[in-house]
Amino acid sequence: MQHAETTQGTPFLEARHIGKRYGGLHAVRDVNLSIYPGEVIGIVGDNGAGKSTFIKMLAGDHQPTSGELLIEGKPVRFAHPRDAKQAQIETIYQDLALCENLSVMDNIFLGHELTRNPVLRLLRRSKMHIESRVLLDDLGIGIPSTHELVVNLSGGQRQATALARVAKAGAKLIILDEPSAALGVRETRALLDLILRFRSQGKSILVISHEMRDVFEITDRIAIFKRGELIAIKRTKETTPDEIVSLIIRGRQ
């Protein structure tokens, strides 16, 4: 494991020898990775390389069978996605995990609804609509109405809704699984700008992507997965798309 590790300070999240077995199958094996505040790390690799399983462990959606996770130097265990959210890790999955039958506002506040009266827990709808509007405008996200049902939105608008939810949650680490897969050119541009903006706010970002151009534009480091292992971490400035592609396909050079 040759870590090109020169980043300073305590990492926000550190994965130590993280592994996941399903019976005899090693989906992820002995991954060591540190993510620092204000850093964007790209995760690349072929299908079945273990990228999704790895991030699902960071998100609390799957539990590792070996190794440990540290948040700001302290060991943690995530038994449920709730635990990861508590540790200020927010994840946007490939399928975006939106309730399409609900409104933009409902989805932005899902799991964090504002209520009054601790017994009846009445929803504070107009306050949530106003906060959603402010948030969307602030993020420069073009969604005409927070009342609109997600089922009626475009791919980019759905992505934006998921991003607004993450921004609202005030996460320190944002994990994105294939964020540009369903997006048009303009929508992808808006997404990349938003990721860079999150970085400038000191958030850490982990992004799985197949789009080499996007990866090289926004990341600081690139982690290459192959057959469940993290085979290399490269500083984006010190590598080339050709080198990364060759690592993905052939493994070690």
Binding site: D61, P81, A97, L98, C99, E100, N101, L102, L110, G111
Partner: peptide
């Protein structure tokens, strides 16, 4: 609407 999304939202 989507139980998995609710779970992932911490519900």
């Amino acid at each position: 609407g989507k139980a998995s999304a609710c779970r992932r939202a911490g519900i």
